[in-house]
Design a protein around this nucleic acid. Structure first.
Lengths: 211, 211
DNA sequence: GTATATAGACCGACTGGTTGGTCTGTACCA
DNA sequence: TGGTACAGACCAACCAGTCGGTCTATATAC
């Protein structure tokens, strides 16, 4: 049923979008890369937007199905959550280009500014990774967690905040910070360190407002 | 030193970008909303790109400074990390519009597709939140962690993967998934549940490849 | 105190190139 | 014969950035 050309358009555009972002690729670019024409494109898609929708649907449908399966297969929340995380992470392996189109910063600044921005971000990452590695060396953080992945999980967890945080929401930013810190520290501290830093681990207001 | 108009342009464009995304706002839109002109705009900025850079620099400089402060102020990695997380989260309160410009999906699909996409994403969130709430009711997950925030922290942590995951990287997707699950489960499980689900908590390969 | 010079802030019509989408035509197939 | 799949010339709208010019304020000269 699904035409060969349609699949080829999706595949080709995916590669282009991943490189140059959705706004950095024109319909002309896509059809040229496919060896087809505007007519061919618009025969299969109502608009450039519909192409994007189709791409999104591929991976979102996958994780949704897997999440349902997880709930049906296991009968305790822990196992269900574990399975959901498994499939959720897996989707990045299966559909990375699809997902990149959506979450990638599709800004594509001129090299000069792009470079300046990247530099400061790298500095920040370095500090974070250093602290984590140092914590592992000193025996405060569990060594079996790869420092870089731990660091990235923190960056992701916190950066995602912009999607849902509202100033006049139910929780203050300090409470949110405390919960994040709670989850992360409980997640990565060694048993020894947990005892030592006990007050930090349960949303204590000890350091509240210090930063 | 900094001109009044320049500040006004930044402020106004921020509001527009937050609503319509960087690509959804033209320089004309900005100058009209400011009551200024193209000339006024290009007198203060070399390009639309430079405006974006200025916006980025505001918040990245803030977190960078705070991270340095954290390292200087505290002398153990745990306290340093705690302080870094505090300031990192806080920046979303101080500079949310700035950050949104960068991480927001600036795609702005036509309403029809936008709606379809949102629906499936909401379904996914619902499943995740349900599992977490259920886990709290059954005593497997710590009740003091707000379910919605916990859910969002998982979504963020995993979604961020697209930024750094490489198929031919050092770690397989299964290993990455195991580390994520490890951090999260150690972060949110009750002591009771941790004992019960012990094999899951330390990157055991028990369920590997099941999803 | 007044005329002149200079600089910086700002104006807005205009341009050159681009882009999503349309439309007519054609080749092929049932 | 009619319908589907595709080709590609064409168009109208758009948009970042330009450029000649104005207006105001301050400095300098006399």
């Amino acid at each position: 049923m699904t035409s060969e050309l349609k699949e080829k358009i999706i595949e080709t555009s995916l590669a282009l979008f991943e490189k140059h972002g959705f706004h950095g690729v024109t319909v002309k670019d896509i059809v040229e890369a496919c060896g087809t024409s505007k007519g061919g494109f618009y025969h299969h898609f109502q608009s450039k937007d519909e192409l994007l929708y189709v791409i999104h649907d591929k991976f979102i449908s996958y994780v949704l199905t897997k999440a349902h399966q997880a709930k049906d297969t296991y009968d305790t929340p822990t196992l269900q959550l574990y399975a959901i995380i498994q499939s959720f992470v897996k989707v990045f392996d299966l559909y990375k280009p699809h997902i990149s189109v959506f979450y990638q910063e599709s800004l594509y600044l001129k090299p000069r500014f792009d470079h300046l921005i990247k530099k400061k971000r790298d500095q920040y990452k370095k500090i974070l990774f250093d602290v984590i590695r140092n914590g592992q060396e000193k025996g405060e953080f569990r060594k079996e967690l790869v420092a870089e992945i731990t660091g990235m999980s923190i960056l992701g967890m916190v950066n995602w905040t912009h999607k849902w945080y509202k100033r006049d929401g139910e929780k203050t930013i300090e409470e949110i910070a405390a919960i994040f810190a709670d989850i992360i520290l409980n997640g990565i501290l060694t048993e020894d360190a947990k005892e030592r830093y006990h007050p930090l681990l349960h949303q204590s207001p000890v350091m509240k407002n210090q930063f």
